[in-house]
């Protein structure tokens, strides 16, 4: 199962946990399961990029996960872009 690490910034939306184990083949299914468990987090996902095993993706939906993958939700940054959002 992949381990999804959750930033403290959304702790109030996920019952205060900082990580959760989810069995999912890809990031899209992992995040769907996260939202199923913690619906309030859905509105915040658009503000975040996803890091899988250290690599940050802005469009991570179809990135495959390994059974021992570490997945982090990361505030979106925009190299050279004006976009900034809180997380």
């Amino acid at each position: 199962m992949a381990t999804l690490f959750l930033p403290r910034a959304i702790a109030s939306l996920v019952d205060g946990i900082d990580q959760v184990e989810i069995d999912a083949p890809r990031v899209v299914e992992l995040l769907q399961e996260l939202v199923r468990r913690y619906p309030a987090v859905e509105d915040r996902l658009g503000e975040m990029a996803v890091a899988v095993d250290g690599d940050i993706y802005h469009d991570a939906d179809y990135v495959p996960l390994q059974p021992n993958s570490d997945v982090h939700l990361v505030p979106r940054i925009a190299g050279g872009s004006p976009e900034e959002t809180g997380a």
């Binding site: 802005h58 190299g79 872009s81 976009e83 959002t85």
Partner: peptide, 8 residues
């Protein structure tokens, strides 16, 4: 949307 750069 800027292909991952976020949104303007």
């Amino acid at each position: 949307w800027l292909g991952g750069e976020g949104a303007l």
